[in-house]
Design a protein around this nucleic acid. Structure first.
Lengths: 334, 334
DNA sequence: GTGAAAGCGCTAACAC
DNA sequence: GTGTTAGCGCTTTCAC
């Protein structure tokens, strides 16, 4: 049988209300009564029932997180930051993914309707943005973690696409590279567009505009990296460097360059975004514009928690700076 | 204002009890009444409050998951399997990690005491096994996902360490490899011990025992892979293959072999466990004993859910077979 | 087949 | 400062 507040009250010789006051620090309580209650609480090992508390308070103490999927390394990084921050604030964390598309989202929406949590964190909403927006409009506190500007009417945490891409470009330029291959992102991904724009802008400013045929489509996969290099070679395009949007596609690039016998970094320098996992583990290790993923997750979590606590006014977008991590794929540092 | 069961009852001209019956399919209800109730439910967009339901039923409809951390790729894979399965059963999923050690676990234990969820999934409990065991003994349904046999008195889902290691060994033997370097795992990790035993056993049976000096300590990190190869070279140990416990350490091995100018797979064949993420993305891609991580997570989740539903008797350990995925790091297949 | 009433375990007014 | 009394929104006997 579960220990309830009634047991504690009985044993401490006070009412349930007093126990509640002591535990929640609400209202004045006599010091000795409080001490006695606390002793009994400890003796009995009493812990308030989360369900009962949330029903009575109208708040669950739980935060929901909606992520596209967990298997992409960058998302796992963000999630860990979120989890750590939530833990610190003693909130529970209900996890949802959109791994199975619409059905996933419907199930998730059901939990929203059931008031299963007090606030929501969304990692890259993508096509669910309108629906999420509606939830926010309906009164659910929401914080977005997204590098896509379309973000809209909700508070959002991002890293700097433009600044980061420029870091990569300037690094390559400083190494004397003049002919980069540039991988794009999937159709409609603002983040990739911004990066490509900023990257090429820097090259143009330096007097080395990137020709159209040096641009290749990408989808963040290793395969898209392989395909881009294969096509560039087949098309006879000369290049001395490659810029991609994540560790994965850059890995694909390295694989193919190795296969073609082109030396990295002597012949071709490779740089990418993210640094979300295996960038240090490729051969050679990848130079990367590190997105502060853990920090982004943690910051978003803190914003949401403080919004729940009523410390409103968090609507200014937060941008956490990227950092260029130079490794052997662009210049020998080992 | 939230729509409650009372609103539905009023509007449908029935009592709250009847609405509840219709929604939960308990007890007989007149077909036309049921239809009317359902119509009103839809009209009003009524969704029962998760908190109220769980307080009344004594069950939360939520399952807890305790993972070491999310950033290790294999764990993210398991988690995705768990999430997908939980979604199918319409359970909520509260996520906890032990990322920050004892403090993390204490916070987690608080949620257990607060009855925040009905059942628990634990991924590699490691040093928390005794504490988890106590929770199980106290009546919390628990399912473990672990390749470490110490598992104990709880239902557990595992993949085959011994069978998997043998697959790798026999593959290398079939390629004519006779002198493997073998990386171990951290002190006290049964899974690594079992794999190493089974791997060397296979070589011994084939008439090629692995000498003591070909064994190196490991900790699943890329660095440990680099160190092992470096030391083997320095010690003048001859080897024609390397076996490691995951993609990461194998990546380290590949990095250093590349640096030493040793060709993979011609000179050295590399094989590893896990296949949890970037094995296909290394240069060359890694041959790996694939652990069925997603499936393990999903199966454990299903076991827990059916235990919660009262379909007891799931105490036999479940082992899901590994599968050897041959890629270019052992023999050219590309 | 359906309604009334009594909880589930807690918090929050409102008295005293 | 502390107790009493209502709820929070459901489910579940127990009558009818």
């Amino acid at each position: 049988m579960r220990v309830t507040i009634a047991h504690v009250a009985l044993r401490a010789g006070v009412s349930k209300a007093t126990v509640s006051r002591v535990l929640n620090g609400k209202g004045e309580t006599d010091a000795s009564t409080a001490a006695r209650v606390r002793r009994v609480v400890k003796e009995l090992g009493y812990v308030p029932s989360a369900g009962a508390v949330s029903l009575a308070k109208g708040r669950t103490g739980v935060v929901g997180v909606l992520a596209p999927a967990l298997t992409r390394p960058w998302i796992a990084q963000v999630m860990q930051g979120v989890v750590d921050a939530m833990e610190s604030s003693n909130h529970g964390l209900m996890l949802f993914t959109r791994n199975r598309g619409d059905d996933s989202f419907r199930r998730f929406a059901g939990h929203v309707d059931a008031n299963a949590f007090d606030g929501l964190l969304v990692i890259e909403p993508e096509e669910t943005l309108p629906a999420v927006d509606r939830m926010a409009a309906a009164g659910l506190p929401v914080v977005l973690i997204s590098d896509r500007t379309a973000a809209a009417r909700m508070p959002v945490v991002a890293s700097g696409n433009r600044a980061g891409a420029r870091q990569a470009a300037e690094h390559l330029l400083s190494l004397g590279r003049r002919h980069p291959l540039v991988l794009g992102g999937p159709e409609g991904y603002d983040c990739a567009v911004e990066r490509v724009e900023s990257f090429t802008e820097a090259f143009t400013e330096a007097g080395f505009p990137v020709p159209q045929q040096a641009h290749f489509p990408g989808d963040y996969s290793g395969e898209s990296g392989r395909v881009a290099v294969t096509r560039a070679e087949a098309d006879g395009i000369e290049f001395d460097s490659v810029f991609t949007h994540n560790d994965l596609s850059a890995s694909g690039v390295l694989q193919l360059l190795a296969q073609l016998g082109r030396s990295v970094p002597d012949d071709v320098a490779v740089a990418c975004f993210d640094d979300a996992g295996h960038a240090p583990l490729t051969a050679p290790p990848l130079t990367a514009v590190r997105r502060p993923l853990r920090d982004m997750g943690a910051e978003a979590a803190r914003m949401l928690v403080s919004a729940l606590a009523g410390d409103g006014a968090l609507d200014k977008p937060v941008e956490i700076a990227t950092e260029l991590v130079v490794r052997d794929s662009s210049v020998r540092v080992g």
